[in-house]
Write a protein that binds this DNA or RNA. Structure first.
Lengths: 196, 196
DNA sequence: CAGATGAGTGAGTGAACAGCCACTCAATAC
DNA sequence: GTATTGAGTGGCTGTTCACTCACTCATCTG
C-alpha cells in the first residue's frame, strides 16, 4: 500500500532508528551497547546510523528524548481519561498509567541507564535534567497538586525503578514485601516489544 | 613507623584497592572505568589488581560491598548517637547521617552506576539486591519504625540520588525548588576525598 | 534520457581494553 | 646461606569499537 519505494526517507529512518535505540540502549546502557547493535536492530548499517546521528552520544540523547516523549504522552492520555478529576484522582491515574507503561521495562531501564551515564557525560546529564524538568512541570500544571504530593510521586517512581532493577517484586522475603507494599507495577510483558 | 617493609601484604593491598575501586568506579561506572584506572589510583599494576580480584566484575562487586559496609556503619553510628530514640528520631538521625555521608558523592554515584550495571550483569544485580536487603533489614530491626515509614525513607533516598545526579540542588527553577524542597543534602566537599 | 540529489554501505583505521603468562625480586624459613 | 613462598610487573594477544571515507545505486527533476 504505502509505496513501492525501496529506500526510506531520512526522517522515516531517524524515527525507526530512534525506536531501535530505545529498545537497545534499554537493554545494555550507554557503554555496553554498540552502534552496531542499534544498527542491527534497525536493519541498516552502522555507518548510516552514524550519518543520521553524528555521534553515539547524540543517538543516546535522541533515544532519551523519545523516552520522555512517550511518558508525557501516556500521562496526558491517562489524565484526560481520569474519571476523578481532582489532583489526587489525576495523579492516581497517572501512577497507574506509568505502571502500565513500564510494563515492558524499556522506558524504565533506559532511564536508569541514563541516570548513570548522566554523571559521566555532561551532555547526557543535560538531557536527563531537561526530561525531569519537563515531566515535573507537566505534572504541576496538569494536576495542580501540591508540591509535596508531586515530589512524593516522583520519589515513588524512583523507588519503583530500584525495585524493578533488583527484581524485588519477585522476591519472597520480608524486606521485599515491605518495600513493594502498595507499589503498583505491571509484570513484564512476554517480550515481543514495540513495532518491528 | 609502621614498618620498613617494601611490599604490603595481600590483605592490605586488597583493602587499598577496594578504596580505590570505590572512588574510581564512582566517577565513571562499571563500563567506562578500566582496571588500569583503578590500578593507577591504587599505585600498583593492572595485572596485580586482577590477581587480587580475578575479574573486573568481582572488583566492582567488592567496591559495592564496601560501599554498603560504609553506609551501614554510618547508620549504626548515627542511630546510637541519636538523642531522640523513638523510631522517628532514629530515622531522622540516619537521614541526616546519610546526607552527610554522600557529601563526597562517591557512595551515591557508585550506587547509581551499580543500579545500571545490575540490569546488565546478574552477578552485580545480586550484589545490589543483597545490599538493599541488608540496609532495609537493618533499618527495620534498628528503628522498629513502621513499614511504610521505612519504604518512604528509601524512596526519598532514591529521589535524592536522582536530584544529585542532575544537580537539581544547584538549579534555580520552579521544578527544582519543588523537587528539592525539604530534602537534606550536603554540598560536595572540595574534592580531596578519603585517605590517600 | 541526462544529470543531480540523497539513501545507504563495505571496508578500513587507530585506539583501547580485559585477561594472561612468564618473569623478577623481596621476605621469610630453615 | 640456601630454598621456598608470595608480592608485584612488563608485555603480549585477540578482540572490540567509534568513527571515516570513498563508493554504489535508487529516486526525482526536467
Amino acid at each position: 500500500m504505502k509505496s513501492d519505494r525501496v529506500l526510506s526517507t531520512a526522517e522515516e529512518r531517524r524515527a525507526k532508528v530512534l525506536t531501535s535505540a530505545v529498545a537497545t540502549f534499554a537493554q545494555g546502557g550507554f557503554h555496553a551497547v554498540t552502534i552496531a547493535d542499534v544498527a542491527r536492530h534497525a536493519g541498516i548499517s552502522p555507518a548510516y546510523v552514524l550519518k543520521l546521528f553524528t555521534s553515539k552520544t547524540q543517538l543516546f540523547i535522541g533515544a532519551l528524548e523519545e523516552c520522555y516523549r512517550r511518558i508525557m504522552a501516556e500521562f496526558e492520555r491517562a489524565a484526560s481519561k481520569a474519571s476523578d478529576t481532582s489532583p489526587e484522582g489525576e495523579l492516581d491515574a497517572m501512577g497507574e498509567a506509568y505502571a502500565d507503561l513500564i510494563g515492558d521495562r524499556d522506558l524504565l531501564m533506559l532511564q536508569v541507564h541514563a541516570q548513570s551515564a548522566a554523571m559521566v557525560d555532561p551532555l547526557i546529564g543535560e538531557a536527563v535534567r531537561a526530561g525531569v524538568a519537563e515531566v515535573t512541570d507537566y505534572l504541576v500544571s496538569r494536576t495542580r497538586a501540591e508540591g509535596w504530593r508531586i515530589q512524593q510521586f516522583i520519589a515513588v517512581g524512583q523507588l519503583c525503578h530500584l525495585l524493578t532493577t533488583i527484581d524485588a517484586f519477585g522476591v519472597d522475603a520480608p524486606w521485599a514485601k515491605l518495600l513493594t507494599e502498595g507499589i503498583r507495577h505491571a509484570d513484564a510483558r512476554p517480550s515481543g516489544s514495540s513495532a518491528d
